[in-house]
């Protein structure tokens, strides 16, 4: 039995557990049974631990961080989504958030599982210590945006229910969803800024120019502008609630496009596949 075998086993296990957690959260949302919610959180945590083990095994096997092809990015991205969710959960104890974030995680992992998993050595352009900072901040930033989008979705649904008259007990207060998604976006935005800056520094080293309108660069700028708009409207116009929530969801769609769409549809220097 070699390391790869266990890595794949753990990967699959984590995937299954994430699905179970997502189903658990769904049941919790419709039935509002506290126990089911607790179970779903526990499942997410266990899944995360196993996922982390799978990542560590891969790091041992390849001798570097798992940041070098689309499978590894998607896998790390999933890991970061769950990480951000668990951090938010253990600080604020909003079980329901999981119902909106864990499905995103397992979808992303499903995408990862369809990609070739072979461990290949790093191509020359990627052999740089900037890879760690650049992609490390990228997955954390994207994980935060995913959680923010989950919170915003929750806000929108919650808002609809409130209009219908009965307020559901197990979804956290709309106010809280709204504020929390804003704070999470602020953090993700700070990280995204770092991604772009470290990218520019690296691009200067690897490609001779710090900015060249490569599709990935451009789309990261577009994502950055969308969240900038969000933050400005929020600061200066007191934009809150539904409009802000929709903006955060659109922002996340943009993130997903930068992550998957650009690699598939708009090849450039950045599309390592």
């Amino acid at each position: 039995m070699d390391i790869i075998y266990f890595e794949e086993l753990f990967f699959t296990l984590a995937f299954i557990i994430y699905i179970i957690a997502s189903v658990g959260f769904f049941v919790f949302l419709v039935s509002s049974k506290e126990k089911v919610g607790k179970f779903a959180v526990l499942a997410s945590t266990i899944g995360f631990v196993i996922h982390t083990l799978a990542m560590i095994l891969r790091i041992i096997e390849s001798g570097r961080l798992p940041f070098s092809n689309q499978f590894e990015f998607a896998n790390s991205f999933t890991w970061a989504i769950v990480l951000c969710y668990l951090v938010i959960h253990y600080i604020y104890k909003f079980t329901a958030v999981g119902g909106f974030v864990m499905p995103l995680a397992f979808l992303m992992m499903g995408y990862a599982s369809m990609l070739p998993k072979t461990i290949k050595p790093l191509m020359p352009a990627l052999q740089s210590r900037w890879l760690t900072i650049h992609v490390g901040t990228a997955i954390i930033s994207y994980g935060s945006f995913a959680v923010a989008a989950g919170l915003s979705l929750m806000y929108v649904i919650n808002e609809k229910k409130k209009d219908g008259g009965k307020k559901s007990g197990h979804l956290p207060d709309v106010e809280v969803c709204d504020y929390l998604s804003y704070r999470v976006i602020a953090f993700g935005y700070l990280m995204l800024t770092l991604v772009i800056v470290t990218g520019a520094i690296w691009a200067k080293k690897a490609w001779a120019r710090y900015w060249g309108w490569d599709p990935k660069e451009t789309w990261s700028l577009i994502t950055w502008i969308i969240y900038s708009t969000y933050l400005h409207l929020r600061f200066n116009r007191g934009w809150k609630g539904k409009t802000a929530a929709w903006f955060s969801i659109i922002g996340f769609l943009c993130v997903i496009f930068t992550f998957i769409g650009v690699n598939v549809l708009l090849p450039g220097l950045h599309s390592y596949r």
Partner: peptide, 24 residues
């Protein structure tokens, strides 16, 4: 003003998107 800033944000975003969709 603030309103113009938001308009510019949106225009820059749209223009940039066009540049990634149409071959340059």
């Amino acid at each position: 003003g603030f309103r113009f800033a938001i308009i510019l944000f949106i225009v820059i975003a749209i223009y940039s998107i066009i540049g990634t969709v149409i071959p340059q």
